[in-house]
Amino acid sequence: MDAYLAAIAIIALIYMLLSLGLTLQYGLTGLINFGHVGFFAIGAYTSALLSLQGLPLALTIPAAAVTAGLAAWPIGLISLRLRDDYFAIVTLGFSETVRLVITSEKWLTNGVQGIPGIPRLFETISVGIGAQLAVMGLILAVTLAAIYAMRRIVASPFGRVIEAIRDNEEALQALGKDPAGFKIQVLILGSALAGIAGAFYAHYITYIVPDQFIPLVTFYVWMAIIIGGVGRVSGAIVGTGLLMLFLEGSRFLRDIVPGVSEVEMASLRIGVVGLLLVLFTIYRPQGLMGDFTKR
């Protein structure tokens, strides 16, 4: 049971990094990124491939962040020319393109067979609860550092500018500010966080395949920040925790609801998640950590 809880905590922390990246992009800046999982995949494959070439994880994980951030740079340039809805479609197409590339380029990614034998974090510690706690401690430290950095960004002049982009970009331009550079920086930073999350995921699971990086992952991250409160760092934290609690808790519904197969239960879980999203949008659009004086 301890090992199971530790595993859930590790996955929750990885999703929390994804949520923080999307909070920076959409919650603070207003950039609708439906392709967040693409940068997650880039980080996972970058770190996995480099580590299999013998590079230490202390280098492969930062390399994953850099690669994911660089991949976001041309997407940032596109964002300067497109309205929000068109940009959302472009990012979704980008994530699917990434998945198609890692599926078809077998010489590099091994295609649908995936990449097995990825070096795990803390290989010197034997497999067990001790190794899981060490991994959880490392990812928790990185997550806390990301939370601290996000709070510093929110309180900085940079944070005030990107919030102005979200609220009224035309007014910001009238004041002589150029939103273009800020949008690109935000996309790079948020995508770098997704790349780090992908690297941790790859080295924790130790086996990755393209089907692990489907749009549903992005949907879950969006769900987390909507539940917690869009534009709030605390919202990303609380929303991710509640989402993971629901996703894992619903696995035990089969013991309560008789006559439901595993396939039917998986579909039911997705349906309930969608229903929760609709209910939160209608009755609590500001999220759990939003302003309680507003509806």
Rank of each mutant, 00 (worst) to 15 (best):
E170P: 00
I214L: 14
L172M: 07
R284G: 05
D255G: 11
V161E: 09
T218D: 13
G159H: 11
R166A: 02
V260Y: 01
H203V: 01
R251N: 14
M223P: 00
H203Y: 05
L144M: 14
G176L: 03
M150C: 15
A155W: 09
V273H: 07
P285F: 06
Y207K: 08
K177S: 10
E163M: 15
I153D: 10
V272S: 05
L268M: 14
M223H: 02
L242N: 06
L277T: 07
V217Y: 06
V260E: 00
V217Q: 12
P210A: 08
I227G: 08
R251F: 02
E248P: 02
I184F: 08
V273R: 09
V217C: 04
L172E: 00
N168E: 10
F246R: 04
V230C: 00
D255R: 13
Y201Q: 02
A197T: 08
M150H: 10
I237T: 03
V257Y: 11
F213M: 09
Y220P: 00
V217G: 04
L253C: 01
R232M: 10
G198N: 07
M265W: 14
Y220H: 12
I153A: 13
A236C: 10
G195C: 08
G229E: 07
A171I: 00
G190N: 09
P157R: 10
L243H: 04
L175E: 04
A180M: 05
Y201F: 15
S234D: 15
V278K: 12
A171L: 03
A236N: 11
V186P: 11
V221R: 08
R269A: 00
F246T: 02
L268R: 01
F213V: 07
I282R: 15
K183M: 05
P285C: 03
I226W: 05
V209G: 05
V217D: 02
F219P: 02
A224N: 05
Y201D: 00
L172D: 01
L277G: 03
G181A: 05
L275I: 15
G190K: 08
T281E: 10
I214F: 14
V221L: 07
V257N: 01
G241N: 07
R251G: 11
V230Q: 14
L277V: 14
V278A: 13
T240R: 09
I196A: 03
A180L: 01
A145K: 05
Q212V: 04
A155L: 13
V260P: 01
F219T: 13
V154N: 13
G235K: 06
G198I: 03
V209F: 06
Q185F: 14
M150L: 15
V186L: 10
L277F: 14
I270F: 09
F252V: 00
I188S: 03
S156M: 09
V154Y: 14
S156K: 11
G181M: 06
V260L: 14
S191R: 12
D167R: 04
I188Y: 04
I237Y: 07
I205R: 07
I153W: 13
F219M: 12
A224Y: 02
P179V: 01
R152K: 15
T240L: 05
V186A: 09
L276K: 04
I188W: 03
M244T: 04
T218C: 12
K177L: 01
A146C: 13
R269F: 00
M223D: 01
S156E: 09
